[in-house]
Simulated scan of single mutants.
Amino acid sequence: MEQSFWRVVLSYGHVGYRNEISVARHLEFSKYATASDVLHEVNNMPGTKNKCVCSLYTISPLEYRDGKQSELENFYLQDLFVNKEAEEIC
């Protein structure tokens, strides 16, 4: 099954009073996914603000691979994932 790859820059909250951080997320969807499908999915991601999407566009598989690697090195996302896993365990 072929895939489409997307780069979405999201605003995350909970980093201090009226503060936010923008983080690029790299997502994989089916070949037939549209921007609307991607928007629906990212609006349900934990930690995102209302109207969280700053930019959204398709990328190549190579850009996706490099982007996923940079996500693993992002300190904010590391903390977000650790806290999410802790909540699921409880």
Score class of each variant (00 low, 15 high):
69 Q>V: 12
64 Y>G: 02
22 S>E: 14
4 S>V: 06
42 V>P: 03
51 K>F: 15
66 D>Y: 11
39 L>R: 02
66 D>W: 10
5 F>D: 02
15 V>H: 05
58 T>R: 04
22 S>N: 14
50 N>F: 10
79 D>C: 08
30 S>T: 10
80 L>C: 03
17 Y>A: 14
86 A>K: 11
16 G>F: 11
61 P>M: 08
22 S>V: 09
87 E>Q: 15
21 I>L: 10
82 V>C: 01
80 L>M: 08
5 F>L: 03
7 R>Q: 06
9 V>Y: 02
42 V>C: 03
85 E>V: 13
41 E>T: 12
54 C>D: 07
66 D>K: 12
78 Q>L: 12
1 M>Y: 05
2 E>H: 06
79 D>T: 13
9 V>T: 13
12 Y>W: 05
52 C>P: 03
79 D>G: 10
38 V>Y: 02
22 S>F: 07
13 G>M: 04
83 N>M: 08
27 L>A: 01
20 E>A: 14
79 D>F: 05
22 S>A: 10
44 N>Y: 06
66 D>S: 12
33 A>Y: 01
53 V>S: 05
40 H>A: 04
57 Y>R: 05
64 Y>W: 14
19 N>V: 09
42 V>E: 02
28 E>G: 04
72 L>I: 01
51 K>R: 15
30 S>M: 08
66 D>E: 13
23 V>Y: 03
64 Y>K: 04
41 E>C: 12
78 Q>E: 10
53 V>H: 00
63 E>G: 00
31 K>I: 14
39 L>N: 04
38 V>M: 04
22 S>I: 07
18 R>G: 06
19 N>S: 15
39 L>P: 00
43 N>F: 00
45 M>T: 05
27 L>K: 03
28 E>C: 09
84 K>D: 08
84 K>A: 14
54 C>S: 08
14 H>S: 13
59 I>A: 03
89 I>R: 14
28 E>T: 12
85 E>K: 09
24 A>T: 12
36 S>A: 15
37 D>C: 05
3 Q>W: 11
50 N>I: 11
59 I>E: 01
24 A>I: 10
53 V>R: 03
64 Y>E: 01
67 G>W: 04
43 N>Y: 01
54 C>P: 00
18 R>L: 14
12 Y>T: 01
81 F>I: 11
4 S>Y: 03
19 N>Y: 11
23 V>R: 00
54 C>M: 09
58 T>I: 00
51 K>W: 14
24 A>R: 08
67 G>P: 02
35 A>F: 10
68 K>T: 08
